[in-house]
């Protein structure tokens, strides 16, 4: 492994950590709302959150590129803010990844919230807990397995994404060249030994992540 490979690894971990933290922040209120609401919008919002599951990354990447470019709404907004354009920058990658990995974080948390049911929340209310207090002292602890699954899946999915980071990132060393893009680069340049090292590492990493997920299986924890 040379320094380019190590830089790409570091960049990938940095990207996945930031994206996971942001997704827990953004995803939790969305998941809570989706789990509790009676609104007619529930179906539409749920469908939008799930879109990245079914859309090819190239579609999402292309639209994000258009949106973030100088003629797109997001691009105009960031230029108006004075922070310039997002494509081909690390913050641009972060935003694209947040979109792409959103369902992987929202859905497990939403399922966990739904599994709690009405009763513990009603009990908390009769004990005069405020909704805010109920959320933090009752809902979040009970939904912990969902948070764990969401965080692990969001992290792993961000590490594994490829099509979008290539499209939004522009393959710039130390800035947007993450491991998945570097592997592709090695393969295309016929540098198969380097590709093997990194690919093998990805396989082991993915296995360990999934092993952790299934070992801390939410269902089993709740029984115990």
């Amino acid at each position: 492994m040379d320094s380019a490979d190590l830089n790409a690894l570091w960049l990938t971990l940095k990207l996945a950590s930031i994206v996971t933290a942001l997704l827990l922040l953004i995803g939790t209120p969305i998941a809570w709302w989706l789990a509790r609401t009676q609104s007619a919008w529930k179906g539409a919002v749920g469908a939008i959150v799930a879109l990245p599951l079914v859309l090819p990354p190239t579609v999402l990447g292309f639209y994000l590129l258009l949106a973030m470019g100088p003629h797109g709404p997001l691009g105009r907004f960031t230029e108006w803010l004075g922070i310039g354009l997002l494509p081909f920058t690390f913050p641009g990658l972060v935003i694209a990844s947040v979109f792409y990995s959103l369902p992987f974080v929202v859905q497990p948390i939403q399922n966990a919230f739904e599994a709690i049911g009405e009763r513990p929340l009603e009990v908390a209310a009769t004990l005069r807990a405020s909704p805010w207090d109920t959320f933090w002292s009752v809902a979040v602890p009970l939904a912990r397995p969902g948070f764990l699954s969401g965080a692990i899946l969001g992290f792993a999915h961000t590490v594994g994404e490829f099509g979008i980071v290539l499209m939004i990132g522009g393959n710039i060393p130390d800035k947007t060249r993450v491991v998945s893009v570097l592997i592709y680069d090695h393969v295309e340049a016929m540098e198969y030994p380097q590709a093997h090292w990194l690919s093998g590492g990805m396989v082991i990493f993915s296995f360990v992540v999934l092993l952790a997920l299934y070992t801390f299986n939410p269902a089993r924890r709740r029984e115990g």
């Binding site: 590129l65 003629h71 354009l85 494509p87 081909f88 499209m167 522009g170 393959n171």
Partner: peptide
């Protein structure tokens, strides 16, 4: 900034990114 192939490179420029 690098496109994966010449088609993606064209896309980068055509979108103004």
């Amino acid at each position: 900034v690098q496109g994966e192939n010449i088609a993606q490179t064209h896309q980068f420029i055509a979108t103004g990114a």
